[in-house]
Amino acid sequence: MIKTAPATTASARIRGAFSEGRLTWSGLALTGFSILVYIFLYAPIIILVLFSFTRDEFGVRWTGFTLDWYIRLFNNPRMMGAAWNTLVVATVSTIVSTIIGTLLAMAMERYRFRGRNAMEGLIYLPIVVPEIVMAVALLAFSAIVFDVIKMVTGETLRRNLATVTIGHIAFSISFVVVVVRTSLKNFDRRLEEAAADLGADNWNIFWRITFPLILPGIIGGALLAFTLSLDDFIISLFLSGPGTSLLPVEVYNRVRRAVTPEINAISTLMLILSMALVALSQLLQRRR
């Protein structure tokens, strides 16, 4: 059977929509307002991305498309060095903080022990402590540790990539704990009992049952830690030593002289990487 759609004019449809209450003046105002908010949020970013392709060497006007800035960026040893440092620090701090954070999450989720409540509060503190406070504290602490090492061994240590990495681990752990605990809360512990009942010892229970089922949470936590480390500025600035600056710090140093399209280009790349990581972590969480 063939159905023919009734012919309606556009104006009739709009009038219909009005009478059914789908299209109202307040509805239109809300739509317009929402669009404005999104423009406010995203216009600067879109312009940044756009101007990473402009021929204009001050990167403030559109004078034609080019990939020169990206090519220059890849030929800039300082920038590439900083990018490499950033990736190394992010990778190492992610691995370490994910392992420590996962173990901590399991301990807090599974066991009752003295001081558990205090520990619970303290583990989330780094999330709310202003980052500048954290940075100053870590800087002061590293100075004390270096002094002690000098007194004991006579070695003079300087801040380097290792100190930055330790700083990043320190603030990443809390975030990993938060994410992993969520997936542990959703994990049905009766599955572990079932595995034990079927002859699995603790090792097998963890690796065959618990780990695969909380893995999306662990990966989510790791991606969050990686993203946070990538774009961290304050702690990286305070804890990196001479000649070991990370990308956000390097970008800042360059911006102080002039904003060039090269900065736009590196910012665009960091944006894409961060967005890809967030998308990946969302995807993994949803697959659960």
Binding site: D188, A194, A196, D197, D201
Partner: peptide
């Protein structure tokens, strides 16, 4: 549990 000669069918089934 893993060393006992018994097996359990759980109320919730607890399938992996």
């Amino acid at each position: 549990p893993h060393l006992r000669p018994v097996n359990t069918v759980f109320q919730s089934y607890a399938l992996f």
